[in-house]
Design a protein around this nucleic acid. Structure first.
Lengths: 163, 163
DNA sequence: TCAGCTTACTTGGACGTCCGAGTTTCGGTC
DNA sequence: GACCGAAACTCGGACGTCCAAGTAAGCTGA
């Protein structure tokens, strides 16, 4: 592509005097960069037979004290619906990276526990992903933090946390 | 949620001396804000029976000179695979917002043409979406542009356009 | 104690995205 | 003029996400 399609979209938007061109452009940029990062990270994860969603879930379990968390808590931390967590844990379990374990005291609750294979793969996958800087190698650390700070404002506004 | 799960993830990441914590946090923030924006915009679009993807496609056709574009060109502009465009045009056509028209000279090519209904709905939908500032009302225009500028660097790096 | 509300997870279905593979058509080359 | 690679689109399948609805289990209060 020889030109910036988002800049062109904004130009058209402004020519027609439509509202909120800056917000439109920023939102569309987010959509596009999301797509870029996801694509780059998943290219690197593919040899491990992992997607970004499953990789994140494994990292979460790897970081937890006992290597196990209730599915509901996983949904809170990953900010996913319960159904998405069920789906992800299903697949990870089929791959042998995770095991479903009943909660010792609450029979409603299921724990997902990372296996030895899971620990091994998350280590290797992390090496590969960090080597690509999560697809954001074009930004220096200050720019990355500036970006994170701007995005935090949107997250607070959405009620992710008090701020 | 009473705390910033991404800040907590970064803390854990750094405690273990894993690499590229700033990139990890920025990438994860993008993922989350993408989800927030998409959810907010689609909430507003739901009454029109549109998704963001289909809305964007309609806007693109609305902006085009003849109200019609080859599917391939739509894919370039929207940065989507050909199969995604086929899917979106299928649905828009079923809704009566778009019509498939054969290309006058190249029989391989199909044009998607916006209908009168399509023009009407895109106007109404745009009013609704801009009223919500594309879910980014928490940022002022300067911050939106700063965000767009940072994201542009990633897009150029990914080869979206020469820069 | 037990009825009713809440919590935790699963199921079924819709949607958008991608990939790989296939069909039709175009166009340049020999 | 025929061949062969390239271009444009479609099809089938996988995946992740969401929503609505359903089931099982815990909890609360009269």
């Amino acid at each position: 592509m020889a030109f910036d399609v988002l800049a062109e979209a904004r130009r058209q938007w402004e020519v027609r005097h439509w509202d909120a061109p800056a917000a439109m452009t920023a939102a569309t940029s987010i959509m596009r960069v999301h797509q870029i990062i996801l694509s780059r990270v998943e290219d690197v994860l593919r040899p491990f037979d992992l997607t970004f969603a499953r990789y994140e879930a494994l990292v979460l379990l790897r970081f937890s004290r006992r290597g196990a968390l209730p599915l509901g808590k996983m949904g809170d931390r990953l900010m996913l619906h319960a159904t998405s967590v069920t789906n992800i844990v299903d697949r990870l379990e089929r791959q042998g990276y995770v095991r479903r374990v009943p909660h010792p005291r609450d029979r409603r609750t299921t724990l997902a526990e990372i296996t030895e294979d899971g620990r091994r793969i998350v280590g290797k996958a992390t090496e590969a992903v960090t080597a690509t800087q999560f697809g954001m190698g074009a930004l220096d650390p200050d720019q990355l933090d500036a970006l994170t700070d701007l995005l935090r404002i949107v997250r607070v506004d959405a009620g992710d946390f008090p701020g």
